[in-house]
Every structure is written in structure tokens, then in C-alpha cells.
Amino acid sequence: MKLDLILRVTTKAILPFILLFALYVHFHGDYGPGGGFQAGVIAAGMVILYSIVFGVEAAQRVISQRLVATMVPLGVLIYGATGVISFLYGANYLDYGVLGHDSKHGHHLGILLVESGVIITVAGTMTAIFYAFVQRGR
């Protein structure tokens, strides 16, 4: 499938910025709009754009199906494990106050950990759904 040269070059040029924007939305979620879910969808959108323009084989060489299938449960595990860590420090489940050296630091860290779980699961699931649809069409 040969596509337009301009389309290919433009896609290559904007891909890193899409990923950067996804990471910005994720790590800036404490200060601005967005968070793990939005960032995960944007990251998955980058993979989908790449596979539409360059073919699914090229995309699966970079982000393999095995990796995507691992990401889907991994995020939920990270989220759940954050709650278990609070347990181990003697607090309630998902009480972040005890995670850092003071309460505010703990809340920052807890929200970041939990959002990391969300971004991994969402990015994995969205990519997995897209891969499943494409795989079926062959």
C-alpha cells in the first residue's frame, strides 16, 4: 500500500509530538486538564495513526501484540498494588498520605502512580482493540 509522500513525511514528523503531548497530559494532570485516561487514548491514537499510514506490520514491529496484551492487565495491577502499599504502611486501601515523607508528597506520588496504572491499561486496551479489528480483516 503506497500512500502519498506528503502524508508519510507529515505523519513521521508529528508522531513524536503526539507521544510528547500524551506524556505532557499524563504528567501535567495534577496542574492542568487531563490525566491518565486522556493520555492513554492519545498514545494509542499515535500507534493507530502509524499503522494506518505505514501498515500494521510496521506498527507491530515497534509495539508488539504481546506487549499490548501485557499492558492491559499491568495497569490494573499497578493501580491495585498502590492500594496494597498503603495497606502495608498501616493506612486504609488507596490512602496516599502515607506513601511519601509527608502527607502532601504522598498524595502527589499516589495520584501519579494510580494515573500511571490508568494510562498503561487505557493505551494497551485501545491499541489491543484496534489490533484485534485489523487482525480479523486479514
Binding site: G29, D30, Y31, G32, P33, G35, G36, F37, V72, P73, G75, V76, Y79, G80, G83, Y93, L94, Y96, S103, K104, H105, H107, H108, G110, I111, V114, E115, G117, V118, T121, V122, G124, T125, A128, I129
Partner: peptide, 30 residues
């Protein structure tokens, strides 16, 4: 909590059980 964005605080801190459930829903859908 020291987090300036109240939406994030409510979603990921005060309502973190709900967000855990939502993440599980996405996992189940995938």
C-alpha cells in the same frame, strides 16, 4: 493534598475507588 487541579484530586484521590472500578471496566472491555 497540595494538588492544584481539583478535578484530578477528586478523580484519583477522593474517588480513587471509582477510578479503580473504571480501570477494571476498561480492562474487561479489552
Amino acid at each position: 493534598t497540595g494538588v492544584p487541579n481539583v478535578v484530578t484530586t477528586v478523580l484519583a484521590d477522593y474517588r480513587s475507588f471509582d477510578t479503580f472500578g473504571e480501570t477494571t471496566v476498561i480492562f474487561t472491555a479489552g
